[in-house]
Simulated assay, not measured.
Amino acid sequence: MAFDLRWLLLIIPAAFALGWLASRLDLRQAKRDPRDAPQSYFKGLNLLLNEQHDKAIDAFIEAVQHDPDTAELHFALGNLFRRRGETERAVRVHEHLLARGDLPAAERARAQHALAQDFFKAGLFDRAEAAYRALAGTAYALESELALLSLYERSRDWARAAEVAASLETRGAGSFATRRAQYLCELALAAKSSGNAEQAHALLNQATDLAPGHARARVLAGQWALQAGDAPAAMAAFEALLVANPQAFNLVAQDYAQAAEAAGRQDDAIAALQARYAQEPALALLLAWNRLQPEHAAERLSAHLQRVPSLNAARQLLALQGEPVAPGVMKAIDVAAKPLLRHRCAACGFEAAHYFWQCPGCLSWDSFPPRPVEEL
Rank of each mutant, 00 (worst) to 15 (best):
M1E: 10
M1L: 12
R6F: 03
W7Q: 10
L9H: 08
L10V: 14
I12R: 12
I12L: 14
P13W: 13
A14T: 11
F16L: 14
L18D: 07
L21I: 12
R24L: 12
A30R: 15
R32G: 04
D36N: 11
Q39E: 12
N50L: 15
Q52R: 14
A59N: 11
F60W: 08
I61E: 09
E62M: 04
P68C: 04
E72G: 14
L73R: 12
F75S: 01
N79S: 09
T87Y: 02
R89Y: 04
L97A: 03
L98F: 06
G101L: 10
A106Q: 13
R108K: 15
Q112I: 07
G123I: 02
L124H: 13
A128C: 05
R133S: 00
S144K: 00
A147N: 04
L148A: 01
L151D: 00
D157M: 00
A159K: 11
A162K: 01
E163K: 08
L168K: 01
T170H: 11
R171H: 01
R171Y: 00
R171K: 11
G174A: 03
L184R: 03
A188N: 08
A191M: 03
K192L: 08
Q199D: 07
H201R: 13
H201A: 07
L204G: 03
L204F: 03
N205I: 08
Q206K: 13
A207W: 04
A217D: 06
Q223L: 15
W224R: 12
W224T: 05
D230I: 06
D230Q: 13
A236G: 09
V243Q: 12
A244C: 06
N250Q: 10
L251M: 06
E261I: 09
A269T: 07
I270K: 15
L273D: 05
A275E: 04
R291S: 06
H296C: 08
H296T: 13
A303E: 09
H304D: 00
H304S: 02
Q306E: 11
P309D: 01
N312I: 13
A313R: 02
R315T: 14
L318C: 14
G322N: 07
P324W: 03
P327E: 11
M330S: 12
K331Y: 14
A332V: 10
V335P: 01
A336C: 10
L340F: 12
A346H: 13
F350A: 11
H354M: 12
F356M: 10
C359V: 08
P360K: 02
L363K: 08
S364I: 06
D366Y: 04
F368Y: 05
P369G: 01
P370F: 02
R371S: 04
